[in-house]
Design a protein around this nucleic acid. Sequence first.
RNA 1: GUGGGUGUAGCUCAGCCGGUAGAGCACUUGGUUGUGGUCCAAGAAGUCGCGGGUUCAAGUCCCGUCACUCACCCCA
Length: 444
Amino acid sequence: MSEQRVVRPTPISGFPEWTPQVRAVEQRWLDHIRAGFESYGFASVETPSVENLDVLMAKGETSQEVYTLHRLQADAKDDSDARLGLHFDLTVPFARYVAQHFNELTFPFKRYQMQRVWRGERPQEGRYREFTQCDIDVINVDSVPLHFDAELPRIVHQVLSGLDLPSWTLNVNNRKVLQGFYEGLGVKEPLTVIRAVDKLHKIGDDGVRDILLGEGLNDEQADACLALARVRGAGKDVAGKVEALGVTSELLSEGLEELTFVLDELADLPEGSVVADLSIARGLDYYTGTVYEASFDDDPAYGSICAGGRYEDLAGQFIRRRLPGVGISIGLTRIFAKLVAEGRIQEGRVCPTDVMVVVPNAERRKDALRTGALLRERGFNTEVFHSTAKVGKQIQYASKKGVPFVWFPPFGEDGDHEVKDMASGDQGPADPATWRPATDDTSA
RNA sequence: GUGGGUGUAGCUCAGCCGGUAGAGCACUUGGUUGUGGUCCAAGAAGUCGCGGGUUCAAGUCCCGUCACUCACCCCA
């Protein structure tokens, strides 16, 4: 061995990775979410990790920190890859995808997409530079039935309810309500108000009021904006509460109608799981109607674990058709990482092996391999020990890897096969052609 | 991008007012001949993030730098 310099492995900030036993759980989650999406008829789509930069930047001065791609060996003049950036969400690539495959798709197109995305922000708890989003979107030509605005929260509710999470709430709002209300109030720059109000839960009433007054609103207007932002509830009373504030506009009534419809449709969900919260605004994004944002009840500052909304025309940059949509995204990594950090994940198996076959000695190695093949054929995840180490070593390996059964082929020419239940320590003769575990619970 | 904290074995950390490194866990081997998780014994493992400075002497002080981390910003 020469004294080769070792590259010290260090964690890369914002790029989480898990041990096999934790990853096993994450994979179960992914399977669960996928099944939930498919149960509503959404089809899977996967897009490349990269998009052309002008696609990523297409909609409104995206402030997202985009990672760009370049070859290490590229010389200064070679900019063939310079236009590629890693996607920072799945909605924008999806819009491009729909425009590009317009003729091949059936509308309304309902797709789900579960992929990693990248953002070059400064990482911190719950905020990563590489993370997995689980998106569902519906895109249609010209208009999307409001029905979907209610179906998406239902799907999310069903999916997340199956994951044993700390309690969370999906807040719903409608940008038309905000926009219409502010217009009715005579506010000149509704967007700045929306941005300010979005911070309500963080900086409080006084903080928001200061910003609003600084933006030129008068006391009455600021009070009204705050009063609107404080409206919460489920069902029809929400519209009543807003109307009681005495502001009217066409857009406002339209928004209230939509919001009420969505809440009505979801009235059968457990109380408190989907709630209207008129302070939810979703920053400056492309959303134009319904907006969603979910967070943990006991730790709202952790950030949104699920978000989305309705957009009028995201694909309009790419095709001369009007393609509105509505979508929602589950922040899988953010949710999962929190549970991992808090030790709330019940770790899965270290490896998927059900049975490990012992190699009794060099002469019997072929027999061990044959036994392993037979068990594998019969549907058991089977590995044959990789060398002819002492039997104690072999069992220890199985023990450390959490393999539930260790198989002993005969040590001599004849003799019985034996199998050992690692949990109980019981060991006895068994036939590889017919053996079954006593309790069929190898998946734990 | 702005501001604070931290950086010593694989992991978690100790190392007092400067005198050339330690613990626990993990790891390896052994406690004999075909059997794990316990126990016992022994062992291996550290450019003290990196570079420079002060000093007879620096993990320990100073400067720089990088990384990690927290907050702001923003968001899943």
